[in-house]
Amino acid sequence: MDSEIGIKTGEIAQRWKGTPGMLTGALQEIQETFGYLPEEGIRTLASELDIPLSRIFSVATFYSFFRLTPPGLHHIQVCEGTACHVLGADQLSAKLFRDLKIGDEGVSEDRLFSIDRVRCLGCCSMAPVVRIDDRTYGRVRQKNVAGILKPYLKEGDGEN
């Protein structure tokens, strides 16, 4: 419990305890902190909020927003909502998976990128839409992909 994960989740749990929506709120904040929901964090949360571990796991697996494995250094959300679908999201998403050599597990081998297919990022007027970390790109065509990824590649090269 006195590891970094234990301490930080303990603090998060205390902040949320007793407020409406405390479980999803705390889980969201844990995910923001670590990029995913580490098992130790979930265990700490269960004891701090006095919620059965099984229930936290069922919640964490039911909602698509939560992830139980670490994402890549840069996390890509490619929108497959209706407006994006109509304007070619399938091909765009296939290109991202292909170009970054990402398979069904969703993370590239060097862990630089991960991809999630999501339903609507609320920028449908700018379809097709891709979000990388917290930046959103609109009207993305296949031919723009390389240019959009470029800044993230460089930074990664330096860090890896």
């Binding site: 409406p20 929506g21 405390m22 999803t24 927003f65």
Partner: peptide, 22 residues
């Protein structure tokens, strides 16, 4: 209270469960 990526949670009874942490 934040949702967590489930279409059905917009349905009112499901939404209530979601707020309750289920």
């Amino acid at each position: 209270v934040s949702g967590a990526g489930a279409f059905v949670s917009g349905e009112e009874t499901a939404l209530i469960h979601s707020v309750e942490g289920r």
